[in-house]
Write a protein that binds this DNA or RNA. Sequence first.
RNA 1: CGGGGCGUAGCUCAGCCUGGUAGAGCAUUGCGUUUGGGACGCAAGGGCCGAAGGUUCAAAUCCUUUCGCCCCGACCA
Length: 437
Amino acid sequence: MRLSRSLIPTLKETPAEATIASHRLMLRAGMVRQEAAGIYAWLPIGLRVLSHVARIVRAEQDRAGAQEILMPTIQPADLWRESGRYDDYGLEMLRIRDRHERDLLYGPTNEEMVTDLFRNAVRSYRQLPQSVYHIQWKFRDEVRPRFGVMRGREFLMKDAYSFDLDYAGAVVSYRRMMLAYMRTFQRLGLRAIPMVADTGPIGGDLSHEFIVLAPTGESEVFYDAAFEAIDWTGDDYDLFSSEQLEQFYTRMTGIYAATEDKHDAQAWARVAPASQRQGRGIEVGHIFYFGEKYSRPMGLTVAGPDGAPLVPHMGSYGIGVSRLVGALIEAHHDEAGIKWPDSVAPFRAAILNLKQGDATTDAIAERLYSALAPDALYDDREERAGVKFADADLLGHPWQIIVGPRGAANGMVEVKRRLTGERVELSLEDALTRVCA
RNA sequence: CGGGGCGUAGCUCAGCCUGGUAGAGCAUUGCGUUUGGGACGCAAGGGCCGAAGGUUCAAAUCCUUUCGCCCCGACCA
């Protein structure tokens, strides 16, 4: 993309409404614009990041055997009357009436609809287990939206649903999804820690929140440093071996981690002092096992081996995709701007032509751009060097290739790593090799 | 939903108390000088002062109503 003709409205000053780092930086970097309380338009830079996050989420869901579908944002109220949630959900649900006076709603989640899909399409126990997911916009009419996309009313969520024949099967699905989540967050460049969450009326211990560590997070967390040492993306655990999933789960839940309200001083005391870590975190995912809560009232059954109907056990698994964009910034920024992890950066590199209109720098910048496009943002504006440096740091591309008149005369450019601030002068070819490595 | 605050130029804000021709900085456009970390000078464009009623000779300013947004708290991917 050429910056001179892009919708990337960076701001030098912070808009008054933004108080936390990610909100401030998303507005300053021109990633989003607010349209109403908790409702945002995503501009090119923001959308690229959102897509990259979704891509990783999708890849790990696919790898865990979940099937991608796409359910609508608008749902018929009757479905929710079947589960009883049409009345229970309260004012957070946005209710709509169409021209025929039919009651509709903008979906805050999809348990009812996915249960409906399965009851209409799945007949036999031999078709289970299965799980599906979609990445779709949700609407929850929050009393107080805030913190930009971290708590919007409209947000992009990945929600997955598992269908198993019995509790034992559901447990395996649950653990598989937990492993998929650990891999997802690690690939995104985040340190996420699962913490036991309230299960509500279902009971049991099968509900976890995933807390991403970020200095500006909302809740205080305590955890064992052992979490930091584990590489979940490796092949240590087979997603399709229930034994290995059990090992994974045992290991994971054997390490101490708790949010402030569930903090257990006695258990904490047993963690070696050198391994005690305290920080702040943001909830970016939540997984539940809820058994027959929807399948039974909505009449989802499959024929069992003996012909008798079986009621599948379900689970649901959410990741706040748009919230993750905010969480990523909370975890990766400095005074100058965002420091994107390579895996989600809007562009791999920015090309800074410090003297636009100069034949030599123009030629070099164009060559770099054609070699790196479409994964590079070419700052071809007629701006002073300082403006380009500041915007590049703000937008947070992992790499900056600085083309200035001094080096250009000798065929040299400067490569800056945003993460470390390290800069080296290199030939064109070496610069490309370095950035593409 | 309780408590607090704010709506004036694209952004940050002053002006309001004490009514009298709508302002500054940044941004934008043009010209000139500059040119490796958010330059300087000159000039220009840009506003139904959130909206509607009212008081007044006169309202951004006072009164009433209303809409929107933000912050703190209780609740949530």
